[in-house]
Amino acid sequence: MARLTLQFPEDQYCFNTLLTVRVTDINAAKHLGNDSMISMISEARALFFFEFGITETAADGIGIIVTDLATTYKAEAHARDQLLFEVGVMDFNPYGGDITFRITRPVDGVLVAMAKSGFVFFNYQSLKVIAMPAEFPGKFAKVNWLA
């Protein structure tokens, strides 16, 4: 069975934030559960967008919708661990692109996970994918475009 491999250019990370693993994030195996990691990735994405002045859904119904999420786990995280989420964007296309995440435990430098989340711009009133607003890519200096 093929395994997923996620590797991203070092220079594309443009935001980072620390999040703490809560006791309620721990699963029966006594480590950070997959569902909680997805929630933490979503929180890091929301903080990233806020930092760059991007609303996930504006009053006019124009917003961003997640199209996919891929995550590879490299190490366990436990309750009260601080995790550093480094966030970037890449592979823009006319409708969206990818948000990338490198998640480490800063206390020992251990890589906990890598993730990539696809997104497109979406009109929640017409329920249709729309073109990326012209001002969006200008917020990010080092982003590649897909053909």
Rank of each mutant, 00 (worst) to 15 (best):
G97T: 00
F122E: 00
G109T: 03
F8A: 00
D91E: 14
T24K: 14
S36E: 08
V66T: 09
L111V: 06
D91I: 00
G63Y: 00
H31K: 08
Q7E: 13
G63N: 03
T100P: 09
F50M: 12
E56G: 08
A147H: 09
L18S: 14
T100G: 11
P137A: 03
S42D: 15
T72K: 03
R80A: 14
R105W: 01
I130T: 03
K128C: 12
E135T: 02
I38P: 10
S126D: 06
C14S: 12
I41S: 10
A29W: 10
E43D: 13
I26T: 09
V129W: 07
P133H: 10
F119T: 00
E76W: 04
R22H: 12
D11L: 04
E51H: 15
L32S: 11
S126P: 09
M1F: 08
V66Q: 11
T67M: 08
D81E: 10
D81Y: 00
L84C: 11
T72D: 03
L146K: 15
A147P: 06
A58E: 12
G109Y: 03
T24A: 13
V107F: 00
E51M: 02
R3K: 14
N34H: 11
P106W: 02
R45T: 11
R105F: 02
K30V: 09
A141G: 06
C14A: 12
V107A: 13
S117Q: 12
E43H: 05
A59T: 10
T104M: 01
D68K: 07
I26M: 05
F49E: 05
S36A: 15
G138R: 01
T57N: 10
A28P: 12
T5F: 10
D11T: 13
L18Q: 12
M40H: 15
D91M: 04
Y13H: 07
G63I: 00
T17A: 10
E10A: 14
D11A: 11
F121M: 08
G88N: 02
I103H: 03
R45M: 10
V21P: 05
D98Q: 12
D98S: 11
L18D: 15
G118V: 01
P106L: 03
S42C: 13
P94H: 04
F49S: 08
S39Y: 02
A79F: 02
N16V: 04
N16D: 13
F121E: 01
A29M: 15
L69A: 08
I130V: 09
L47A: 09
V23E: 15
F121N: 05
P137Y: 00
I65H: 03
I130F: 04
R22L: 02
M90Q: 10
R3M: 06
Y73Q: 06
M1A: 15
V143S: 07
I130K: 02
A58M: 01
E51P: 00
V89W: 05
A134F: 01
